[in-house]
Design a protein around this nucleic acid. Structure first.
Lengths: 181, 181
DNA sequence: GTTATCATGTAAAGCGTTACATGATTGT
DNA sequence: ACAATCATGTAACGCTTTACATGATAAC
């Protein structure tokens, strides 16, 4: 049994499968606008994963010459690649992740902060959350008009983020009322 | 200006400040039961950060001989250490974090899954969330009875997790009803 | 001429993980 | 004897990031 590949490899593999014949540059843009919300990866990493996938034979790279832009590589999944993708999707143990909330780490040590610093921290968090709510709301509405199968999961993923942010915003309200007793 | 230290360094610094004269072993246990929910760190990393903090002069290490247990090091923050901690707490830009949801990454590619696999994925997620809800509920109740200043932030942090998990559980219900139309 | 977009990488650095090592003491 | 708890590390590995490099075309 070969050593397990990182989740990001499958993230890129899935993206190539979803958008065949896209360039790395295109995929960087799409990744940033789609799964970056719950699985952010850097441009460098995405390119490296594309090369790894090509080495594995899971994607096939084709050079495309362009007239009004520099030449590029485009990618599409191979049969083994699609098999690897569905195997990974079928594996429940593969659904690993990490959560690291800088906000909560600060808040956890709030006793060491002055009251106005705590208020400021909560305010900043509220700004972040409201921005998320706007972003996700827009995304949900936009994807609701599309009828492709990919749009549905995209919309529901965005809804997940929306509901999460809304619950946390309500949490801020409750915390503020408790702290100003 | 020195290069920025990782957040985990301050996480450990804050913990030493909160629980002075604890051993590394003790802190591993406390970290696992407290901020691991939103900032998990491994035992190895915690020990490494303790040594780094000692090198920085931010904590002071004392050797303690014990009769009924092996000898140990205990730690307490120094004046510069407490200053570094409050500086970090006052810095709003320091509240960085990362989110990586293995569940959503899978769900995002749900079009490639068979219907029963999607159901299974959602079921697994529900199990995780209900376990979180139980855990956080218990923590909230337990900390509600305590009156120390640290218990309040701990309780509210747990409440944050509780509300988040509840919202996501409701999201699952909505997704399931939509998918079985 | 300079900025913006397209397009793909290299290099350096470090955070964080898992697996393993070591050894004392206590309880069964 | 053996397992559990206390206690602290080492070693190896690699994911991931930031900063930088390169160069083409297009627009202003």
């Amino acid at each position: 049994m070969t050593t397990a590949l990182p989740e990001s490899t499958y993230a890129v593999l899935g993206l190539v499968d979803k958008l065949p014949r896209s360039s790395g540059y295109d995929l960087v843009g799409v990744a940033g606008r789609s799964f970056a919300h719950f699985w952010p990866i850097s441009q460098t990493l995405l390119y490296r994963e594309l090369n790894r996938l090509a080495d594995l034979g899971w994607v096939h790279a084709t050079r495309v010459e362009q007239e009004r832009s520099p030449s590029k590589w485009i990618y599409e999944t191979t049969r083994p690649g699609r098999e690897a993708l569905t195997d990974w999707l079928a594996d429940p143990a593969a659904a690993k992740g990490t959560v690291r909330s800088g906000f909560l780490l600060h808040f956890f040590f709030a006793e060491r902060m002055r009251p106005e610093q705590v208020r400021s921290l909560l305010d900043d968090y509220r700004v972040v959350l409201t921005a998320q709510i706007d972003e996700f709301s827009e995304l949900v509405e936009k994807l609701a008009t599309m009828s492709t199968p990919g749009a549905r999961t995209g919309r529901l993923s965005a809804l997940h983020g929306l509901r999460t942010a809304q619950a946390r915003l309500q949490w801020i309200v409750d915390v503020e009322t408790e702290l100003t007793l």
